[in-house]
Design a protein around this nucleic acid. Sequence first.
DNA 1: TGTAACCGATAAATCGATTTTTCGCTGGTG
DNA 2: CACCAGCGAAAAATCGATTTATCGGTTACA
Lengths: 353, 353
Amino acid sequence: MAQREVQQRRASIHDVASHAGVSAATVSKVLAGVTTVKPENARRVLDAVERLGYRVDPLASDMRRAKRRIIGAIMPEFESEFFGQMVTELEGLAEQRGYTLVAASSRESEARETEILARMHDWRVAGVVLAPVRNEHGPAADFMKANGMTGVLIDRVLSDDAFDTVSADSAAASAEVARMLVGKGHSHILVIGLAEQAATVRARLEGFRSQALALNPSMRIDVITSEVSVEPLRSSLRDYFGQGERPTAVYSLLLKGTLVALSEFRRRGWHCPDDISLVGFDDAEWMQVTWPAIAAVVQPVRRIASEAMNLLFRRVEGAMGPPTARLESCQVLERESVGSPGSGPHSGGGDRQ
Amino acid sequence: MAQREVQQRRASIHDVASHAGVSAATVSKVLAGVTTVKPENARRVLDAVERLGYRVDPLASDMRRAKRRIIGAIMPEFESEFFGQMVTELEGLAEQRGYTLVAASSRESEARETEILARMHDWRVAGVVLAPVRNEHGPAADFMKANGMTGVLIDRVLSDDAFDTVSADSAAASAEVARMLVGKGHSHILVIGLAEQAATVRARLEGFRSQALALNPSMRIDVITSEVSVEPLRSSLRDYFGQGERPTAVYSLLLKGTLVALSEFRRRGWHCPDDISLVGFDDAEWMQVTWPAIAAVVQPVRRIASEAMNLLFRRVEGAMGPPTARLESCQVLERESVGSPGSGPHSGGGDRQ
DNA sequence: TGTAACCGATAAATCGATTTTTCGCTGGTG
DNA sequence: CACCAGCGAAAAATCGATTTATCGGTTACA
């Protein structure tokens, strides 16, 4: 319990030492659990610690180590449930091991990503969990490599020759989505995504395409991707529908795409699943309370986070060997936004507004 | 540009000093912009810095200061857009001033809140931005007070006698919601919320109630709040509707409540705004793409963040004086989930599924 | 009896930067 | 010529903890 020390400078290890009548080194050893300390002295040290409310200063404690007990986390954004949960999980896992997590958002910019990484390098973080904006081959991974940083890449990655990677098994999940949609009788499906995240999006696309075509070789699969941001995707989609294209289902390869698809459906007065079916990669809390509830691929956030931390700490502790590439399986939630083609009015106009 | 130094120990200020043929103190001064250094030496220092790719170690640099250039941020959760954006903003603002932001989630637990705070105190952070789980009178604020920490309280707070506070002007926004609903002809409205966040929720409730009653004294306003978590709220709501209560509009005082309300509407097959109108405090991206789009109160995240940081840094720099309590005004977005009572079927059954 | 091994603890070095103190040197002044 | 002021830079102290080297005092063994 802290007493009148309030507002004053906090007690240092030397204060504890003098109160206990021993040297600072002895205090350090007692607190580190070294057994070569006389019980009597240990007791007095612990007494003093208690009396002064002493706590080790992690910053000072880290001074001498080459790798500080800090883990950096870089996410493309914090606004979505996925990355929000990810940071929460990572923080908890770091804390469990006595590490502090410093999280930063790259705001979908590779330039910022590298800047943040450089700053974390300055802090001499023990390791970094990087969810790259684009993929594992960006400047950020290069920077880490060039500076001998230890790290794990997650989410928008497949595998790397220098770092362990952990991501959702996009291909398998997409194949399951394909089975679901083809099983319902869809034979003309539009897939939308952002090309930014090259490898991941490609995996999701190919996983879907190959499974769908395997089940129905005459299937028609249209693909719309935008290079950079969401807005071009929106206008491409608008053009596509504007030209009279009428797929019976849309599979969005990422959350932003799901939002874009929904808003385009709204513009045209289309309802799911009567007028068109919709499935999106990435789940969100709201998707189960809207009308209709939106079918989604749920990524195993906790498993990705814990696996990433396991791999990271293994490396931090000096583990060598070739990098691992883990794929964690997803869950596909079939909800009301998916139906069979032709089962509803499909008028293209029925607004309930 | 870093050269073959890769993988090696990073250059320290002493390496720079010896390469430049000066002392470490001189290097420090050059980098700090002190002008009492001979131009010739300054140049050589900067050369060496460039050549070695030297960057100041922020940890070592902070050692001597009583307050380190670290700002702590504690949020109840990271999963919602509101807090996600908040962290993003705070991080950017801290970075602008050369500070590092360490963010942690209290996971809606006051106990965890205090633990995190204690850990941040160990780091001797310069200041803390705390979004308390409950309100400004919790154990976390007490801890900060007792330990002489500097901080700002945001979001679920109104005002405090020790810390500056910044939050959305809940009362004013709620009054505007009241004007909107009463203006549409609603005279029986249900308000739902969590009592946890006592003062804030009360402000939202009172702001709404007083304005609504002023406009229509015979107005009926029912209130359902749950003490602790979301689930009791859900069952209370279920009971309420189960007893045959049929308000024409629901005003949710927080995001979770909006989700609960929507899912209960779903259960009963009610549609907005035909069967019932809905307005929620807190906006989210999905609310404008669903059918119907959900009316919401938008909190000025950026303004709250920047104002909080301004106040915080003022205190960090030693500003004295009584604490400020800022209220930032919100924007009310009227969307399709709000209509006039009786304008739709109000059958209580029309499902489009 | 002399020396080695050991125990427990302290002094000192270390980490990397900042800040204070000290010092050498130049130039101006009485 | 002696002294002081001022400049610029080096030396040293500091921050708080950890780790290594050292040291006094026993005990064991040859």
